[in-house]
């Protein structure tokens, strides 16, 4: 049986980890490779590297960094941020990324999803959806959460699955950074509407948050950044907690 995945996310700015300052045990907490190695040793199931300035400043993710990570970490990882087209995706995959995450460009040019999944296979095309609650629905935001896309998140999730996305990285902008738990309502709405894996993101603060989103919420994976960065919990602690409660994890 397939296990549920716990995924630490590393925000990358100019090739350095942002928010990694609390890693006292590391020689260089800003070094993506060192941080990735630590998560690898903690039994993380995958890693996500998000180049947070890329989309906004129209920068391309540093291929060298991806190569350096792939040279050192034998764990699947997804790279996102500033992905503009097929060549970009090919370069990231060739450099060693298992999957590439597209956000803004997927909204602007939905054909990129179908073209990329036809070319490289659905399994390596992740569409990141940043969603924010409006009256009765959720609005999709692009450009790193700066611009409303005029799209309903549920509609968009179904659409990207139809176009051939292999996975959805679903971030609740309302819950992100609050530590109040994942957005149960948003996650449930999306996981029950699509038949591709969904990674829930935004709001992890306690162990039980992981449990509820992976069971009741129907998520296939749960992503957290600061919780792991600031070492409030280790990945292993989260997975042990889940295992004790009957959730299948790799330990």
């Amino acid at each position: 049986m397939l296990t549920k995945r716990i995924i630490p996310c590393l925000d990358i700015k100019e090739g350095r980890v942002v928010k990694g300052v609390r890693f006292l045990s590391l020689r260089d907490a800003g070094d993506p490779v060192e941080v990735a190695r630590l998560y690898d040793s903690e039994q993380a199931d995958e890693l996500v590297f998000l180049d947070i300035t890329a989309s906004y400043e129209n920068r391309k993710t540093l291929i060298e960094l991806v190569e350096e990570i792939a040279k050192n970490i034998f764990l699947p990882f997804t790279v996102g941020g500033g992905v503009t087209g097929i060549d970009d995706i090919r370069n990231l995959l060739n450099a060693g990324a298992e999957k590439v995450s597209i956000n803004t460009q997927a909204v602007k040019y939905p054909d990129l999803i179908s073209e990329a999944s036809r070319k490289f296979g659905s399994q390596c095309i992740v569409v990141a959806i940043d969603a924010k609650k409006e009256r009765d629905n959720w609005q999709v935001y692009i450009n790193g959460g700066r611009t409303p896309a005029g799209l309903d998140a549920l509609f968009w999730a179904k659409k990207v699955a139809e176009l051939g996305a292999g996975e959805i990285l679903l971030t609740s902008m309302d819950y992100d950074g609050t530590k109040d738990g994942f957005d149960m309502s948003l996650t449930k709405t999306v996981t029950s509407a699509v038949n591709i894996p969904v990674i829930a993101s935004g709001g992890a603060g306690k162990l039980e948050h992981f449990y509820s989103i992976l069971t009741e919420g129907g998520a296939d994976a749960a992503l957290a950044a600061s919780l792991f960065h600031y070492q409030e919990y280790s990945v292993k602690e989260v997975k042990r907690y889940l295992q004790e409660r009957g959730v299948r994890v790799r330990l």
Partner: peptide
Amino acid sequence: ADLKVPHMGWN
């Protein structure tokens, strides 16, 4: 319904 495709993760 109960089987997501792609099969993605640790098994």
